[in-house]
Each structure stands twice: as structure tokens, then as C-alpha cells.
Amino acid sequence: MEELAEVAGITVRTVRFYRERKLIPPPRREGRIAWYDDTHLARLHTIAALLERGHTLSGIAELAEAFDHGRDVAELLGLGAPSEEVPVRLSPEELADRFGGQATPENLAAALDLGYLGTDGGEIVHISRRLLDTSAALVREGIPLADVLAAAKQVRSHADALAELFTELVLAQPGRTTEDLQRLRPLAKSVVEAEVSMALDRWLQRQR
């Protein structure tokens, strides 16, 4: 603990206090020896950065608990599962910077439940750069992150239904396999994009 405190630039008493508040995970123990590693150091740096940004220790503790109970990145992305999305690795403070004061424990929990976020050691992994950038852009437009995530939950439900519909359409044909489904993915995306575009056209027309 003394070495960890020295490298982090804080006192042993502070490290012990953070440990008691469950702000950092417990060390790995071998007999009476407690081993702290780079994960603990990264968490201490995160705590310092979040404190500088005005977060309270209670809020940081809630965030830490959410991170520690979040899904592992391998579970989130799926081992060997095909995907066109590019995951993004973020530190907790980088995530806070993207969404300002709206990176609250409640919003983080909602993002974890959606499967948008996973954990990998001291890092957070967002499953999709496109979704991350879009969410941040909507927040910059003044839409609360909580509303963005609530809408995302509804979009997920509709998207799952559309994916199931397209899957049944393809695989119902004789001799079709999941390889055909993967090959025809761009067609499904084109249909959905066109239909959403036309739906927005119809909605805008009704507002005139």
C-alpha cells in the first residue's frame, strides 16, 4: 500500500480511506501480503480526475460500483461474433468529459443495462463509436442524456424486431444459411435507413 500511495502521489491514509469506502477494489492477497497493481493505480488517478471535475466521493463510489459490476468487455462484444461496429476504449474521466455533468450513476447504469458499456480492467469500453458519437452529439444539442438513453432502449426493441423479421425472411428460403444472412446485411440496413428517412419526411410534412 505504501508503494501504491507513493506512485499515486497521495498518503497511505488516503488509500486506506478509499479502500474502506470501496472506491478501489481489494488487493490480491498471498498470505499476509496484499498486492496492488496498475488497475488500482488507474482507479486512483480516475478518482483524482473526477474530484477535480467536481464529482463527490459518494458519486464516485456509485460510479465505481457500477464499473465493478458492469459486464466484461468479452461478454459485451461477444467472442467471435460478427460486428460492423467499432468499440471505443475510454477512461471514466474521458467518459465524464464527453457528457459533462450528465455522466451520472443513473445514466451509467442505464447504459450498462443497454449493453452500450462494458469494463476491461481500469477502462470502459463503449460497444459502438457511432452510437457514442451520436449520443454525445444529441447531448450537445441540449437533449438530456437520460432521454437519449430512454429513446435508445425503445430503438433497441424496434431494431431487434426488424432484425428478427429480416432473419426469418432470409432463412425461410430453401438452402439459405447464416452466411447468406451476413452477406445480405447491407440490404437490411438500406431498407431501414430508407424507411426511417421517409418516415421523417412524412412527419415533417404533417407539421407544415
Rank of each mutant, 00 (worst) to 15 (best):
G142Q: 05
G175Y: 03
A48D: 14
R156S: 02
R98I: 03
D160I: 00
V73D: 10
P186L: 05
L149G: 07
D147L: 10
A151W: 05
I47Q: 03
A42V: 04
E52A: 13
I47G: 03
E123C: 07
D133G: 04
Y116A: 14
G122F: 05
D72Q: 15
G80P: 09
P105T: 06
G78E: 13
Q205T: 13
T14E: 08
R183P: 01
S157H: 02
W35F: 15
A96Y: 01
H69L: 14
L171N: 01
M1N: 04
D160S: 03
T104L: 07
H69S: 15
L44I: 12
E141L: 14
L57T: 04
A64D: 09
D68P: 04
L57W: 05
R176C: 08
W203F: 14
D120H: 12
V73L: 04
V125E: 09
R130T: 14
P26G: 11
R28Q: 14
W35Y: 15
A48N: 04
Q154A: 06
A152V: 00
R71I: 12
R43E: 08
L23A: 05
T14A: 11
L114N: 05
R156G: 00
P144L: 05
E6T: 02
D160Y: 00
G122V: 01
A8G: 03
E93A: 11
I24M: 07
T134A: 15
E20R: 12
Q173F: 01
P87A: 13
V192T: 10
K153F: 00
A188C: 09
I24D: 08
L90Q: 11
A194Q: 13
A34F: 02
G121N: 06
D97M: 08
Q102V: 12
L187H: 06
G118D: 11
A163I: 00
L165N: 04
A199G: 10
A61M: 07
E84L: 13
L114C: 07
V73M: 08
L149M: 09
V192M: 11
S197K: 12
E84V: 11
A110Q: 09
P27T: 04
R53D: 13
W35S: 13
I10T: 05
A61T: 11
E20W: 01
T167D: 02
E3F: 02
F17M: 13
E6V: 00
R129I: 07
G59S: 09
R129F: 09
R185E: 11
Q173C: 02
L95N: 06
V155S: 05
E195G: 00
D68M: 06
V15W: 00
A110E: 08
A42L: 10
F17N: 13
F17L: 13
Q154T: 03
P105R: 04
